[in-house]
Design a protein around this nucleic acid. Structure first.
Lengths: 153, 153
DNA sequence: TTTTTTGCAAATACTTTGCATAACG
DNA sequence: CGTTATGCAAAGTATTTGCAAAAAA
């Protein structure tokens, strides 16, 4: 999603403020690059890839390097300022096609299954889905830090 | 998910039958490699990566090549015999952290947002999630063929 | 000033492709 | 037997890392 879509310029400002606060809290410096990269993702409605963010940021900062974009996107994800769609790098496969959830640990990359308990109702397909195309698979992805990683601290 | 988990040996047989039927229907040959690779994913509970499937299949077929594994996983996905967790190769980012859905086109890779309509209730976190770790983000992923790709035929 | 971050270049994953041979139907 | 699938090797992407110089606090 993007900010232009619901026409709120103040929303961007709000997110920027949160961004700066989060940086300070984590002891990260608020650099021009970080701000530009954060804005590029926040303003885009196309779920940009690293490469695309890079191209976009280059327009105002012709010297940024692609690896800075990668590093920054990773740290923004770590700070919960943006989310990664899908997994990082490696593809993984699942032979069970019944609707079920995946808990994805953003630290170690592990994927855990969560099956709905007997009394839980299956989640309904959102109505808007029909307009997008033919839905063949449904997968609810939860992202966070798994127990194992939590205990490593 | 896997088959061992719910202790159904017959389930594997059932899936194998479906696998063979699907292959014939699509005019694909039922080769030893395809069967082994399909079984490796169906029997695993660890959402294996291509590399891991490769290692596993090598135990019974020391000559399979990694590229055959990649090709086969792709065609099994195409036949809807398994699902890919996450996206293929390229990572994509989203600056909007509110729970919303992504429609992922398995043909062109495009990602579309779906926002719940006003009267739709937000999906509840499955109860099992709590045991996995701390959930920071929720993302419902729908996979299929988008309208644009459908019209290309 | 001191420490973090950047840009560059090079290295490392991960995945895909061309082509001759082998295998399925 | 004709066609598809495999294995090999090599190429193509995507992502990560080491290090000296530049920038933030």
């Amino acid at each position: 999603m993007n900010i232009q879509a619901n026409g709120q310029k103040e929303e961007l400002q709000k997110r920027l403020t949160r961004f700066e606060a989060q940086c300070r809290e984590k002891g990260l410096r608020v650099t021009k690059q970080r701000r530009e990269i954060f804005c590029a993702v926040a303003q885009s409605c196309e779920h940009p890839s690293a490469e695309r963010v890079f191209v976009s940021v280059r327009k105002t900062m012709p010297n940024v390097s692609l690896d800075t974009v990668y590093r920054t996107l990773a740290s923004l994800e770590e700070m919960d300022l943006l989310m990664r769609v899908g997994l990082s790098s490696k593809a993984r496969f699942d032979g069970d096609l019944r609707p079920h959830c995946h808990f994805v640990c953003t630290r170690c990359g592990e994927v855990y299954d969560i099956f709905p308990q007997a009394d839980e109702t299956a989640f309904a397909l959102p109505r808007g889905a029909r307009d997008m195309g033919e839905v063949k698979q449904i997968n609810l992805q939860l992202r966070g830090i798994c127990k194992k990683c939590q205990n490593k601290n």
